[in-house]
Amino acid sequence: MRRSGMERTNLLLTTSEERLAMASVSIAPVQRQKKIQPLIVRITHWINAVAMFIMIGSGWRIFNDSPLFPFIFHPDITLGGDVQLSFEKWQDSGMGGALQWHFAGMWLLVLNGLVYFAYNFATGRFRMKLLPVTLTGLLGDIGDALRFKLAHDDLSVYNHVQKLLYIGVLTLGVLVVLSGLAIWKPVQLWWLTDLFYGFQGARWVHFFCMTGFVLFLIVHVALAVLVPRTIVSMITGNAPPAHAPKERE
């Protein structure tokens, strides 16, 4: 933590050439060979991406059948099959297809999530990557971000805003599964449904978890596209250096 704080101060103080040089120094050959994202994290990340796609898409279609709020999701951006074709084949708007997806996708989401959580807790990766989050750290990073001075040179270190967002989205992941179970089994798992203030309460939580995921995804995908090295690191495990060190080429 102290190191990244020092780095930030240095970055503010140095000229752009010096900053370039510093960046190349900080990426030592040893560090470059180290995998930023372990294989399990990369695999579970992409499986989770597919599972989220299935769950959100089919969830929207299920929502449409009895909207909790006065709007519906356009069927074309939902998962459950083409409306017209579903009517021709099944005399159904596609709710049947959406239910199939949702109750199949939940296994992918939960089993994959369990592997991810088990790995991260067992190896201490969560504590290493996501803690500590401090208010001063948060304010400092937000300030840097607003002045476009937030450092991304070392992808293996998350800034405080990232940490908070990842902790938040992981919490939502737990909540969405629990509220989903509460909706699925309000009689067998009545105590869980009670925790969410009843069946409709669980529906609200389930919906707002989805909303949280969508908002997170917008930021997450946008930032990944802005710093494409992060996408590379999530596929190969390594990130190409932020600034190609000229003197070494």
Binding site: I77, T78, G81, L85, G97, A104
Partner: peptide, 25 residues
């Protein structure tokens, strides 16, 4: 196709997987 969800759902191969999952459930 994934974005519109169009007919992936109604494909025979997809249906056989989804039906198997429903039976498992």
């Amino acid at each position: 196709t994934m974005l519109t969800g169009c007919d992936v759902t109604n494909k025979d191969a997809t249906q056989s997987v989804l039906r198997a999952m429903s039976a498992w459930n």
